[in-house]
Amino acid sequence: MKNDLERTNTKQAKLKLSGATCASCVFTIEHAGRKVQGVADVNVDASKGEISVSYGGNAGSLERIKEIVHRLGYSAEIDWDTVRDA
């Protein structure tokens, strides 16, 4: 975790991912996603078409990851049904 505030308010969510099929895609998305302020961790499972995110509770972090994924040339949609406290 990046700070104590995030530790107490950490949430987890998933984004539906398409277009990412290789290890390089996974690395690129994870690396870029982990740079987003408020994000504790990002894990991509290309075979499931899923991005798992642990973040500080601000939904803006999820929107930012979605934007980054789109800029990288892939498609992502937040699965709001998966948002939960960590």
Rank of each mutant, 00 (worst) to 15 (best):
M1T: 06
K2I: 03
E6H: 00
R7N: 05
R7A: 07
R7Q: 05
T8D: 13
T8Q: 09
N9Y: 00
T10R: 06
K11M: 02
K11N: 04
Q12N: 09
Q12F: 08
K14I: 02
K16V: 13
L17F: 09
S18I: 06
S18L: 11
A20I: 11
T21Y: 15
S24V: 11
S24I: 14
V26L: 14
F27R: 14
I29S: 15
E30M: 07
G33N: 04
R34N: 12
K35G: 14
Q37G: 14
V39I: 04
V39A: 00
A40T: 11
A40I: 04
D41Y: 00
V42Y: 00
N43S: 06
N43W: 04
N43G: 04
N43Y: 10
D45C: 05
A46T: 03
A46V: 14
S47L: 12
S47I: 07
G49L: 05
S54F: 01
N58K: 06
G60E: 14
S61D: 04
L62A: 02
L62G: 05
R64N: 13
R64V: 15
K66Q: 12
E67Q: 09
H70M: 12
H70S: 15
L72A: 12
Y74V: 10
D79T: 05
R84L: 12
D85V: 09
A86S: 08
